[in-house]
């Protein structure tokens, strides 16, 4: 399941990434395999989204979120 498929309030654990270049940026920001991601909210127009990961809030575009594969918990 991709992060972009979650709705606000849902969460999942990072399993892997589909885009190597993007994965480096995401990991630098604390989005690591094994971390819990909670979707906080969508922007009023549906994109980008705000997530909580390793203790802080991150916003990313849907297209970027679709490169993160999650394990459901």
């Amino acid at each position: 399941m991709k992060l972009s498929q979650l709705l606000p309030g849902q969460s999942g654990v990072v399993k892997e990434f589909t885009d190597l270049e993007m994965s480096v940026k995401l990991m630098e920001m604390g989005c690591l395999p094994g971390e819990l991601i909670l979707v906080d909210r969508f922007a009023p127009l549906g994109d980008p989204i705000a997530i909580t990961v390793s203790g802080y809030q991150l916003s990313l575009r849907m297209q970027e979120a679709s490169t993160i594969i999650l394990d459901q918990i």
């Binding site: 270049e21 940026k25 920001m29 991150l58 990313l60 970027e64």
Partner: peptide
């Protein structure tokens, strides 16, 4: 460069 919008939302 490739554009990103991975941005921290500070408290």
């Amino acid at each position: 460069e490739r554009g990103y919008f991975i941005m921290e939302l500070p408290v």
